[in-house]
Design a protein around this nucleic acid. Structure first.
Length: 291
DNA sequence: ACCGCACCCTGAGCGC
DNA sequence: TGCGCTCAGGGTGCGG
């Protein structure tokens, strides 16, 4: 589940592998929910394109192409963006993993989940976009064209202030966690980092957003920055599918305090962590530390 | 305006 | 070596 840190780590590591190279050939799978721009058109239009820079907005990646066009990417739930030569068992199905011997270090071979393959005229490593569940997205934007998904994004979670969180939550009855997940107030936070930040800020995820105090809003902004920056430092969280562009795992999952730890003792007070569901998302909190 | 929920998708894990 | 079921969840869209 790539969230801001995983997307940012991907951006930092794949940008140097992408910028300045001319796309010579594009491979795609067949039309699906994944392709906001139909795959045939995408392949045709990307041929000859050169990427100038790679930007992150919330959980979106935006590749700026020479000439002003932009390629919009979202990794969804299970998206993996990586370079040829990457090796990781996360790039294979369980079935394929089971047939591998421990000493095997198989290179990646595009499979039916590899929806985008970019080859370059320099003959160097290709770039792949693989996404098993197809919740990811790819769209080509013409010069000056905007996308409603980007236009609706709130303040980037690394920049958000307590004052902004406080103002945006006034009059809102929904659970504070729902506000964090919605992307229109704060962009980039998903299920893992919402739970982690709320834990650090001592705020119970179910709390009505409008009841946050100024101090709690400040604490929450600070906790978001702390959790997200630390995760970026450690390479993101590799819990199920996420791998960096070289195939390596992140390490933040080892520092998780609450996410997917229901039933375990709280790392601060020892109370058994409790699970609930908010907006159809599994949610874990410490009933003692978070009020 | 706001809120809750169904839906898009596939694979892992589990009970029988 | 099966089969059916549930769960996982980012983002969108719809009905109340």
């Amino acid at each position: 589940m790539p969230e801001l840190p995983e997307v940012e780590v991907t951006r930092r590591r794949i940008e140097p592998l992408l910028v300045g190279r001319r796309i010579a050939k594009v491979g795609t799978t067949k039309p699906s929910y994944f392709f906001l721009t139909p795959p045939k058109r995408l392949a045709r239009e990307l041929r000859g394109a050169v990427v100038r820079s790679l930007e992150r907005r919330g959980k979106y990646l935006l590749a700026h192409l020479a000439g002003g066009r932009q390629l919009l990417l979202h990794l969804g739930m299970t998206g993996q963006l990586f370079a040829a030569g990457a090796t990781s068992v996360r790039l294979f199905s369980a079935e394929r993993r089971a047939s591998l011997r421990p000493e095997d270090q198989p290179g990646f071979v595009p499979d039916r989940h590899t929806h985008l393959r970019l080859e370059f005229d320099d003959g160097g490593p290709a770039i792949f976009f693989r996404d098993v569940r197809k919740f990811g997205k790819v769209r080509l934007l013409e010069p000056g064209q905007s996308d409603p998904r980007l236009d609706l994004l709130g303040v980037d979670a690394l920049e958000v202030t307590g004052a902004q969180l406080f103002a945006a939550t006034r009059g809102r009855k929904v659970a504070v966690k729902s506000v964090l997940l919605a992307q229109d107030v704060v962009a980039g936070v998903g299920n893992i980092y919402a739970d982690e930040a709320l834990f650090l800020a001592h705020v119970r995820p179910t709390r009505s957003a409008g009841k946050l105090t100024r101090a709690e809003a400040e604490a929450l902004a600070k906790a978001l920055h702390q959790v997200l920056l630390r995760s970026i430092e450690t390479g993101g969280s590799s819990i199920s599918d996420y791998v960096a562009p070289d195939g390596s795992d992140g390490a933040y999952q080892d520092e998780r305090r609450v996410y997917a730890r229901a039933g375990e003792p709280c790392s601060v007070c020892g109370t058994k962590l409790r699970r609930t569901v908010i907006g159809a998302r599994s949610t874990v909190f410490c009933p003692s530390c978070q009020r």
